[in-house]
């Protein structure tokens, strides 16, 4: 700069008086406050686990674990209450099984369509449209299942009752299609083009390339999306509460009303559950069962992804 005669003389250094001490303090305070914020998510998990454990332990003080596991009925409000959790679990598994048999194949096929077949322009319309589907509140899907899908299906299945696992499961499946589609598409999209070219160069058609090479490579991501979808189906509440009914009964008949774990929690919450009562603790015992189910799925997903993730440069 000194070569330019018209430039002002460089300001003398005593014009700069940064408050380094203050900056240092602010820096430290900000850092630790933000770290504390990050800690809140960990605290949430700990809070969930502790509350569930705390109340569940109390519950098993009143109701022995073997009755929870072996009772054939779920009638906590009867004079002679029974606490057979498998009644609720069977309903949850039934609706979830119906849901994922809809959502996994359709979601995966949609993911393939979006990443491999749809032209970029069409894709840029399809993706937001699927996002809208993902953003529809579940209570709306519940309305749809109870008041449109069930009456429609009754035309073909006379045995179908007003509340049933079938409609609830089907609509639940539709509601998680976007989740499967979007996460699977991410996994498929990440497979490098060189791998596809490798298959084409061997004389593979497009379908053979996708099915034979691309999908196996994206397997870990696809399975992760499947597992997340399954835990979403198991934990979903409003659709099954509204459309599958409130009738706890054992069995896997999709045409009759059933009560899932989540539906029980809603039903009980709407009633009188004073803190410390057995009814209150029952909520948490059911919640614990639900949490453990999703946790097992989650751990499986982590393990699977770790084991089968292939890295491409």
């Amino acid at each position: 700069m000194s070569t330019n005669p018209s430039s002002p003389p460089s300001p003398s250094s005593d014009l700069f008086r940064p408050n380094r001490q203050l900056s240092k303090w602010v820096e430290l305070v900000v850092k630790y406050i933000f770290a504390a914020f990050a800690l809140i998510s960990v605290a949430t998990t700990i809070g969930i686990v502790l509350t569930l454990i705390f109340e569940t332990v109390e519950f098993f003080g009143d109701v022995p674990l073997w009755r929870f596991l072996t009772d054939r009925e779920w009638t906590p409000r009867f004079v002679n209450p029974q606490y057979g959790i498998f009644v609720l679990i069977s309903a949850t598994l039934l609706t979830s099984a119906i849901a994922i048999s809809v959502a996994l194949p359709i979601g995966l096929l949609a993911a393939i369509c979006l990443s491999e077949y749809a032209p970029p322009k069409v894709r840029s319309w399809l993706k937001p449209a699927l996002e809208i589907l993902a953003g529809v509140p579940t209570v709306v899907f519940g309305y749809f299942a109870l008041l449109l899908v069930t009456p429609f299906l009754q035309n073909f299945i006379p045995a179908l009752q007003g509340f049933n696992a079938l409609s609830a499961g089907l609509v639940l499946g539709v509601s998680i299609i976007p989740l499967v589609a979007s996460l699977s598409e991410d996994a498929i999209y990440a497979i490098p083009g060189s791998l596809r070219q490798g298959a084409y160069a061997l004389g593979a058609t497009k379908r053979e390339t996708i099915v034979g090479v691309v999908l196996p490579s994206a397997l870990s991501g696809i399975v992760a999306s499947f597992v997340l979808a399954i835990s979403r189906a198991i934990g979903e509440t409003m659709i099954v509460t509204i459309a599958a009914g409130q009738n706890p009964q054992m069995g896997l008949n999709p045409f009759v009303p059933v009560m899932t774990m989540t539906a029980y929690i809603v039903q009980a919450s709407l009633g009188d559950t004073p803190a410390g009562s057995l009814a209150y603790r029952t909520l948490f015992a059911v919640g614990m069962t639900l949490f453990l189910l999703t946790l097992v799925l989650n751990i499986f997903s982590f393990w699977f992804v770790r084991k089968f993730r292939e890295t491409y440069e």
């Binding site: 060189s194 791998l195 070219q197 196996p216 490579s217 397997l219």
Partner: peptide
């Protein structure tokens, strides 16, 4: 069918998973 008769090997190894 043409590509079966005219094979190709690429810059980066591309083994399938």
């Amino acid at each position: 069918e043409v590509r079966r008769r005219i094979g190709m090997v690429f810059q980066k190894p591309t083994p399938f998973s």
